[in-house]
Design a protein around this nucleic acid. Structure first.
Lengths: 164, 164
DNA sequence: CTTGGAAAGTCAACAAGGCTGACGTAAATT
DNA sequence: AATTTACGTCAGCCTTGTTGACTTTCCAAG
């Protein structure tokens, strides 16, 4: 009853196991965001700024609409964040040359510095977790996360993963 | 150079691999919350209510302070959420018998119904992801998430995991 | 060339859900 | 009796999300 035709146990699909996974996601996400949040508090920026900075760093020259797709927020919400980043000289917005309606976004040197500070902190935690769990666990971690995404988001994720 | 003394590859600790993990967390968490969010919108409740309901269901009779520890918010913030849940008859709050300062929280039948609806949706996605990834991947997923938590939160997580 | 529509930006108003600070009450502890 | 703990609440603030309405700029198709 706990074995499939292939002899593989299905005990990992019990409600109890699923609940543990759900709670693990909840607590782990808190850790995931804790370090950048700490750095940003007192700098006048928040998690929304971090996300924008991350993905602009990741895809320099990306457009506003592309960023909207990735972040899944309204343009009004993103615009508020982008405006402060541009005003503060962390992000540069360039009119597109082929299509002048588009704005191509880049981090300035100052923006790069903040990005570095934030991602160093976030990577340090991630690296410690990866090291503690080992390569095989990491592969499983990525597989499950990928399977949890909405198909739309999985597309975005894979576009970033490959065509970086 | 990519091999340790033990002959184990460390390529999984490159910045590139860590970045993929970070982005996977970001996109997956969106999926993780998407279904309950959809159910709650239009019901006058939000993610904060879901979290309270989840952990009250998980630990019936838990106190307000315990819930504060788990959720990591201020009592004012929690109270706003709890008050509406109690007013709407989803949660029952009982004066403690041994220590009458404490309030012990329980879901009412109505609360149980909403909890069921929410967790069914969240578990369905989780189950699909688990099934797609397989038991070994799931074990790795849990290991990495656990290693990502703050020690304080890991304690809470383990208390829940065992003493359920 | 004109016009339709896409891309971007802006204003206003609002809501959820965090936060701090201050205060009150009841009950337990010292 | 004094202090501490657990809880609740009022008031006010911030970030970050939302809608809706509107403008400007620009490409492209008619």
């Amino acid at each position: 009853m706990a074995e499939t035709q292939g002899g593989e146990s299905l005990l990992f699909l019990t409600d109890e196991q699923l609940r543990k996974g759900i709670e693990a996601m909840f607590f782990a996400y808190r850790g995931f965001t804790a370090d950048p949040d700490r750095i940003l508090e007192g700098k006048d920026y928040g998690r929304a700024h971090h996300r924008a900075i991350h993905f602009i760093h990741r895809s320099p020259g990306t457009t506003v609409s592309n960023l909207l797709l990735i972040l899944g927020v309204t343009k009004q919400s993103l615009n508020r964040v982008l405006r402060t980043l541009i005003e503060d000289g962390l992000v540069r917005s360039e009119k597109g040359k082929v299509d002048a309606r588009e704005r191509h976004l880049h981090l300035t040197d100052k923006g790069q510095m903040l990005e570095r500070e934030l991602s160093d902190a976030q990577r340090a935690r991630m690296r410690a977790a990866y090291r503690a769990a080992g390569p095989q666990a990491v592969a499983g971690f990525r597989q499950v996360l990928e399977a949890m995404m909405d198909p739309e988001m999985r597309k975005q994720y894979n576009r970033l993963k490959e065509g970086g």
